[in-house]
Design a protein around this nucleic acid. Structure first.
Lengths: 256, 256
DNA sequence: ATTCTTTTAATTGTCAAACCTTTTTCATTT
DNA sequence: AAATGAAAAAGGTTTGACAATTAAAAGAAT
């Protein structure tokens, strides 16, 4: 008789259970905010122990699919997918990749230029007065000479985030989490300094002006110019760093 | 005396441990492929029980940060972040959002148009002969009239994926997972049919031709035209569906 | 000496049963 | 009527054990 290899379980029980419940949620067999059976009940239904059930639930909770609360009205509930949670997950995944140096600075800047140019174009078309106010407010902050580098960078991130929001395009906003939360910070880390800050604020102001005037092409051109300038500075900074490292090595100093 | 409410622990133990280990990995205090202490050891070090440690590890495993193996040389190891795993995580998060109808079809198509136009431009500049062969192969598949709708859509996804790959930009490829794995499938689901298929293949062929000729602008224009055409068909399809629903309701039929 | 097999030990995976903590509900007391 | 407190329900945690897996060491056969 032919053996049914399928029946040989190769994955752990907790994973199987997690997959079953996940599938039920994704296929809509479990509605949003619906309560799952208690952990005790689940362990009885699946014929496995409670700790194993809990491992499965923890995995699903880590993926923002469910939440748990204690108490008589507590239990485990299906989460409504929301943009912020998804955005955080996306940002975490890409930050991790960027952190280990998966990408070159040059291609990161290219990706920034192209995607942010889109956002500027759409923002020029769709921006509300509120959006303008948000952008304006960040520029005011950035003009403050006494700002720390960290605070300036944070404001820079908020400025670019505000552009994305002004585009009024939800799907694009979701995608741009990668740029906003990972690519911008990694490029900003390298270009501190008074001079660059002033140049940046100038570019920001021109972008805002173009968006306010609903001039899509100019807005796109301004952000392109802004980021191309940054690319040049970045490459210079990396060159300096590289030559310093070479010089240091030549002097016999170990870099680590 | 003012009470220090902060010191009251509000988060669960397993979450605290997960956060600690995650921070250690993100800050590089745990290197890639480094082995963590055994679960037993961890439970002793943190002063908590093994099941609780396991819950924490499961959460990290769900985030692709670690992997576990049994046996004498087994244990828990730090994962190297890789593009595919991150891409899958991103795709999952966005698929979930798209699935519950967070976005309108119109803004999804807009996002597709703008981002895919970028990819076409870059692909025209950077494509290799290999890239061209991959695109060509998909078009050959799509010309087969006997193809099922599912197979056609799968090939369509592969075609667009190949364009992204041809762009040669890693960061962009990461971002485009959202488009490729979520936005394309959801737009394709609605436009089956012989006529649309033939139109699509025609557009694909023209895009390929422009990319092969390294004509960035033409490639971008072709994909724009392709997707704008799809937008029109989609809106028609949705209108038909809506009016059918209204008609059905008027006849006294309950839609659910 | 080499190769095959068996044993062994380390480690994750699972289980069972209890206890702890939080939170709501509801009865009791003031 | 309001404050208090007990009970119950649910997730959170512990303990201690056993099962399954797997690499390496030990032993047996060639």
């Amino acid at each position: 008789m032919a053996l049914h290899y399928d029946e040989i379980v190769r994955t752990g029980l907790s994973k199987q259970v997690a997959d079953l419940i996940r599938a039920a949620i994704l296929e809509g067999r479990l509605q949003v905010d619906e309560r799952l059976p208690s952990e005790d009940e689940l362990s009885r239904r699946f014929g496995i122990s409670r700790p194993t059930v809990r491992e499965a639930l923890k995995v699903l909770a880590a993926q923002n699919l469910i939440r748990s609360r204690r108490g008589p009205t507590g239990g485990t509930f299906v989460n409504r997918p929301d943009l912020d949670a998804a955005g955080r997950a996306i940002a975490e995944a890409s930050t991790l990749l960027v952190g280990v140096g998966t990408f070159g600075v040059d291609e990161i800047v290219t990706a920034r230029i192209e995607t942010e140019a889109i956002c500027c174009r759409l923002a020029a078309a769709n921006r509300s007065d509120e959006d303008l106010a948000r952008l304006e407010a960040e520029i005011v902050i950035q003009r403050d000479e006494g700002l720390t580098d960290e605070a300036f960078c944070a404001s820079d991130v908020r400025f670019h985030r505000a552009i994305v929001t002004a585009s009024g395009n939800g799907p694009l906003r979701l995608m741009m989490h990668t740029v906003i939360e990972s690519f911008i910070p990694v490029t900003n880390m390298l270009i501190f300094g008074e001079h660059e800050r002033r140049r940046s604020v100038g570019s920001h102001a021109r972008v805002l002006e173009a968006i306010a005037a609903r001039d899509a092409e100019r807005a796109a051109q301004e952000i392109r110019g802004h980021l191309e300038g940054m690319r040049a500075v970045l490459i210079q900074a990396l060159d300096r760093r590289a030559s310093r490292a070479v010089a240091g090595a030549a002097e016999g100093g170990e870099t680590e």
